[in-house]
Write a protein that binds this DNA or RNA. Structure first.
Lengths: 230, 230
DNA sequence: GAAGACTGTCACAATATTGTAACTTTATCC
DNA sequence: GGATAAAGTTACAATATTGTGACAGTCTTC
């Protein structure tokens, strides 16, 4: 249910597959890329929660890719774990500079990989997730799993809650129905796009007259959470 | 059964493991962290009863970490024992300032470690844990191991008591079934998640109509103890 | 060693949530 | 202004989640 998405970037298919199998057993969803280009496309498209990046890559090196990713706004906050044959001090320093969050030296056990990965994700998430988010008196408290306004608590279904949480952490940006299905429903569900509309409707209803204008329709595209008038 | 949770923060895995083995034999549950970040994540996540902190840490020093922890509300009352190669007066003063509760100089015997640790825990517990907790007339008295309301004593099984105690010391926060199993049943038991539901039911029943609303169901997630209406 | 309390699990009941289809309303384009 | 596409709404059946009572095994207590 909490299935985070992990992007595996390595040029050896066998290694990718080995990792993917291990991660899927631990309920992570996997994406695979063999080089920097593929990686980049998948990141933009699927917005993984974590990137497993091989130190050596054909063309651009892993370090170089990491550096590029950390510079871009979209990808800057995605944690990166470097896979390296042998961490040398030099590498480590270079890696830390570009912002890798952890290192794993090959060969490694699946158990270790999953453990490290959990640790990194745990470290990475709290900042954003544990703090209550407030907009115009509408507050979402992720710790208590509550939404409230001045006039009291708002009740809504789990999906509406997740939808609102996603929107409040990604304000002022339009998402297509398909992106919302990916982000809120989680990767590989087979659900009609119009279903999003229905949940948007339910969310608006739960928010009430006072706040339903925050969920804005962008005709022909999707929806947006915005504090600015349409 | 009284298994307290101890967080070991040291960058050397071998030392961590040595300590962990010693503590586990003495019926403590151990968590391990190699650096300040991991430590922080684990503290937030698992809320240990005591922290064993190495003086020297990569990046942030142990002293610095201790200072930070003592400042934060969540962690301020968790006792800290510093591990140092050799306590010099200078260190000691610095350490006392940041609020470490004891020092142990490496190398130390497991026996000594456990003894010191017990002493610190004995000293530390009264403040936080032995004080009765009261909510809306419902009182849990950890010393007498009793729960009472205006209309008299409430009886419940041991598990229900621990569950209530956990909830009353962690109010307004949602816990998943798996987290409750970790926290209330204790780390490594293999029990069905639905068992939590049954004990929640028993606890609610024991609390009676007057108080059972304090245990709230958060559909799709878990349970929460809250004085606020749903 | 028997009575009683406590636990964990199961099966079934009670609810809440979900996705979809069908229908209505609103915006857009010519 | 009418045709057409897109989004809003509602109702409903299917599904998922939680509540509840019962039961057998285990541990306590006297």
């Amino acid at each position: 249910m909490s299935g985070k998405t992990v992007l595996i970037v390595d040029d050896e298919a066998s290694i990718r597959e080995m990792i993917a199998v291990a991660l899927e057993m631990a309920d992570y969803q996997c994406l695979e890329a063999a080089d920097a280009r593929e990686a980049h496309a998948l990141i933009v498209d699927r917005q993984p929660d974590l990137i497993l990046l091989d130190w050596m890559l054909p063309g651009t090196s892993g370090v170089e890719l990491a550096r590029r990713l950390k510079k871009e706004e979209v990808t800057a906050e995605i944690p990166i774990i470097m896979l390296t044959a042998k961490v040398e001090e030099d590498n480590k320093i270079q890696g830390l500079e570009v912002g890798a969050d952890d290192y794993i030296t090959k060969p490694f056990s699946p158990r270790e990989l999953v453990a490290r990965l959990k640790a990194v994700l745990r470290r990475a998430t709290p900042a954003g997730v544990e703090t209550p988010i407030e907009v115009d008196g509408l507050t979402l408290d992720p710790i208590g799993h509550r939404v409230s306004s001045a006039s009291g608590a708002l009740t809504m279904g789990p999906t509406e809650y997740r939808l609102l949480q996603f929107f409040m952490t990604h304000q002022e940006r339009v998402y297509t129905r398909s992106q919302l299905l990916d982000q809120v429903w989680g990767g590989n569900v087979y659900v009609e796009e119009r279903t999003v509309d229905v949940h948007i409707r339910r969310l608006r209803k739960a928010l009430g007259d006072r706040y339903d204008h925050l969920i804005q329709t962008v005709r022909g595209t999707g929806y947006r959470f915005s504090t600015q008038a349409v």
